[in-house]
Design a binder for these strands. Structure first.
Lengths: 150, 150
DNA sequence: CCTGCACCGTGAAGTGTCTTCACGGTATCG
DNA sequence: CGATACCGTGAAGACACTTCACGGTGCAGG
């Protein structure tokens, strides 16, 4: 069935892309003494401080795991735990000034990577790529538990 | 710079796709009692038996790690270690009949996923996607250490 | 008020994926 | 025959995850 071949070829490209991108991120983060999981948690703090429970839900991991990740980030001086003003059970995780600097740097690195990957593409091809990926994501989301999480 | 926005938007899509696909694979494999790393190793055995050294290079991990992964797969009865006919230092990792069955099943699952993700796309859009991804991969490969590995 | 239940975060224990370093066995080349 | 490079693995350890159990807190309902 030749119709299938094109689809499997596309999936192969996507799979290789995920592998390569994953390695690239892990390597560049490791150069800064970071790990992917901790950085992902920090990244979710751009919008502002957050409860560990909320972070666990957002990342799709157990609350216990968030405790460990925050431990590591706090030890590196990137986030701080502060008491929740209204709920004494919860703790608010907040980026420190150093964490904020790092977040800005991460955003710059992301823009740079985007430029390296998609820099020479015409407007049409780029728009086409985004629209196809949106369509694929729309189909993939319901297949994955917690796919609605951003 | 609005030109940058489109590129970052594309990268966002790719990143979300990575996360979702990773979860989907991990979940469906876990349902079969497998893990991603072990299955990846098994997947590289489709072409035939292989030395652990060769597997380490192909997967981009340390030789020690391959020992552990093969241990797990052997314990599950999916691969077997056999002496290399010409080099008594090396061991050849070979899929067992059960491992072969599993490989066939994995290939079917991959084709099914490709159908679910890209099924309704027109020939043009699918070809466009593959060509854009090939171009992006071409740029990404040199950025990643070991990017030449398949 | 105060009792029961749901919730927040964390200690304990365990699995899986990875690493580096050291070592014994083997191939190979001079 | 001997130096050297290579193959796989033991030992020890880092990190990302999990479930289960427990103490502290919030929030009703009686």
């Amino acid at each position: 069935m030749p119709a299938d071949d094109g689809r499997v070829a596309a999936l192969d490209r996507v799979l290789e892309l995920t592998v390569l991108l994953g390695r690239d991120m892990a390597a560049s983060l490791a150069a800064s003494g970071l790990t992917v999981a901790r950085t992902t948690l920090l990244w979710h703090l751009r919008a502002g401080p957050s409860t560990q429970r909320a972070l666990a839900d957002a990342l799709g991991v157990s609350a216990r795991n968030v405790t460990g990740l925050v431990d590591g980030l706090a030890e590196s001086g990137l986030v701080s735990r502060e008491p929740h003003p209204a709920d004494r059970r919860a703790t608010l995780v907040t980026p420190t000034p150093r964490g904020q600097e790092l977040l800005d740097e991460l955003a710059r690195g992301q823009a740079e990577l985007a430029g390296q990957l998609f820099g020479g593409l015409s407007r049409e091809r780029l728009d086409g790529l985004v629209s196809v990926l949106d369509e694929v994501l729309e189909r993939l989301r319901p297949l994955v538990p917690g796919g609605a999480a951003s």
